[in-house]
């Protein structure tokens, strides 16, 4: 065997694959750790899958009013179209008599009334056109472009009922203007109520008086006027019947 003899191909030798495998493992570990780090740093709030979804609605209200202009009062909402039912008119007896042409009969000329009718319909048409053009030139609504007309209606189911109570009472929360402004600041009154399964008032009373008879009277009246409320959800019925709920009023 000479030195120049070719080495056997079968001779065991170091595999060149190992460094690649090692590099690959290091790279994967690095990437995984990096990904975990980045996702941990940029993580959003944890999602609680048991929570009820929140429905939020964002509504564009109009272009924002120029800050340099004087403020305008909110336009009152247009009154709902009156649904005045047309007064029932006694049905006219159908004209059953058939006109029989006679010798003397002349072809009917359009009467003065007919002319007036034509005039009327013309003016009606113009009126309608006027109205549409007026409607078209109606002002653009002003408001906050990022405004939220409906608000977000996030209410857990239990809270939804309390919100209903609150809204119903607040709508009737009328207080006399005669209470002086100085006095208003210190007013606080509480009204305790108990509710039946249909949302009816079982018991209502002033549990904490404000010291101002007008205010105390007004808050009790607000609760009484707001009742009956809708039927409470099943799981609240017992509690509302036995312990009830307290409304705490401040101006």
């Amino acid at each position: 065997m000479t030195a120049s003899a070719v080495e056997s191909l079968l001779r065991p030798r170091k595999s060149p694959v190992l460094p690649f495998v090692a590099a690959s493992v290091v790279a994967h570990v690095g990437l995984t750790v990096g990904f975990l780090l980045v996702s941990a740093l940029l993580a959003g709030p944890r999602v609680d899958l048991d929570a009820k979804p929140i429905k939020a609605s964002l509504v564009r209200l109009g272009k924002k009013r120029d800050d340099k202009l004087l403020p305008r009062k909110e336009e009152p909402a247009p009154p709902p179209p009156s649904k005045a039912e047309p007064a029932p008119t006694p049905a006219a007896a159908p004209d059953t008599a058939v006109k029989v042409p006679t010798k003397d009969a002349k072809p009917e000329k359009p009467s003065k009334d007919a002319k007036a009718d034509a005039k009327d319909s013309k003016s009606k048409l113009f009126d309608a056109l006027n109205k549409t053009s007026r409607a078209a030139s109606a002002e653009e609504l002003e408001g906050d472009p990022d405004g939220d007309a409906n608000g977000d209606s996030a209410k857990q189911e239990g809270e939804r009922y309390y919100a209903l109570l609150s809204n119903a009472v607040r709508r009737r929360y009328d207080v006399s203007d005669t209470i002086s402004e100085a006095e208003r600041k210190a007013l606080r009154a509480e009204v305790a109520i108990k509710l039946g399964p249909a949302g009816e008032l079982l018991d209502v009373g002033l549990s904490h008086a404000s010291g101002n008879e007008l205010f105390d009277g007004a808050v009790v009246a607000a609760v009484k006027k707001a009742a009956p409320f809708g039927p409470p959800p099943e799981h609240l019925r017992e509690q509302l019947r036995k312990q009830g709920v307290v409304f705490a009023f401040t101006p």
Binding site: L165, S176, V245, V246, F247, A248, T250, P251
Partner: peptide, 18 residues
């Protein structure tokens, strides 16, 4: 706290002429 009555805070009274 179930033992306590829930309290609903209400403000924003509509001050109107008597």
């Amino acid at each position: 706290a179930l033992a306590q009555q829930p309290v609903i805070e209400i403000s924003g009274a509509n001050f109107r002429p008597m």
